[in-house]
Amino acid sequence: MTSTITPDMSVPAAISVEEQQFNDLLEADSRIEPRDWMPEGYRKSLVRQISQHAHSEIIGMQPESNWITRAPSLKRKAILMAKVQDEAGHGLYLYSAAQTLGATRDDMTDALIAGKARYSSIFNYPTPSWADMGSIGWLVDGAAICNQVPLCRASYGPYGRAMVRICKEESFHQRQGFEILLELMQGTDEQRQMAQDSVNRWYWPALMMFGPPDDDSPNSAQSMVWKIKRHSNDELRQRFVNMLVPQAAVLGVTLPDPDLHFNEETQQWDLGVIDWTEFHEVLAGRGPNNAQRLQRRRDAHDEGQWVREAAAAYARKQSARTEEMAAS
């Protein structure tokens, strides 16, 4: 079929004024704000990333809240409670950022409890010992901070601002975890064993938190163009390991990687091979605790339904009453 109005495909389609403005803002390292025009892909990608991040905070409460009632001293109990509570807070900051993109909390929650939304796989591992409270703080929160500090400069304003707040609060999380392990490593043989065993279990999953290797990370490239993400998975993982090695020495724990060695040439710590099959298994829902974590979230949501409804009904009655009084 021929037509005189067929556009000439050899010339790139002219981009709209809005899109040009969007590109200019990114170019200038400025921020995109909620009511700005943005490409649909950018919006979707952000909603996916921010809501996954929020879900991770919320599911991430569980492996630790598991120990609140059994914390071995009142000080540790208070610290742990405050930390798990912070995670609820961080989830809320992030849901709030996602909401500025048009996603509702109810929809995001429904997706989570229906098993349709992702969250960080790390929280599908169990916490059988108290030392896991240390490892989660030191390794898991440590890795999270590495990932999150650059996100403070994410191009989407509300996300960056939420991350600034979160990063400030997270620094306490990592330190308290380190202190738990330090205290255990300076304690009895049993306590040292407990700490080492826990580090053995959490080390590799923590490294996997940075995501698949760069040559196997489908969403990374676009996210970097959009300045949502600023460093590659492997780059961040390497920086994390470089920081961990001297910290492990202070603790006196061994990192469970026999191939870990210092590379004089690159001045970095070269690590052994990561078993990505495990990562993909857990991601696919076949981790130790996937089902339990979701069920607990679903139970809390379902059991809270009558409370949320009651408060909503009360608010309706109160405003009806106020209107009545104003009318009379």
Binding site: M61, I68, K77, A78, M81, A88, A300, G304, V307
Partner: peptide
């Protein structure tokens, strides 16, 4: 109250009950 954290009817209430529990732990200590 500590046992409520991560099980409250809404996330905002997880935070609220957490604050109450933390105050009480402080008094107890």
């Amino acid at each position: 109250l500590g046992a409520w954290i991560s099980r409250a009817p809404e996330l905002e209430e997880d935070v609220a009950l957490g604050n109450v529990a933390l105050d009480l732990i402080g008094h107890a200590r």
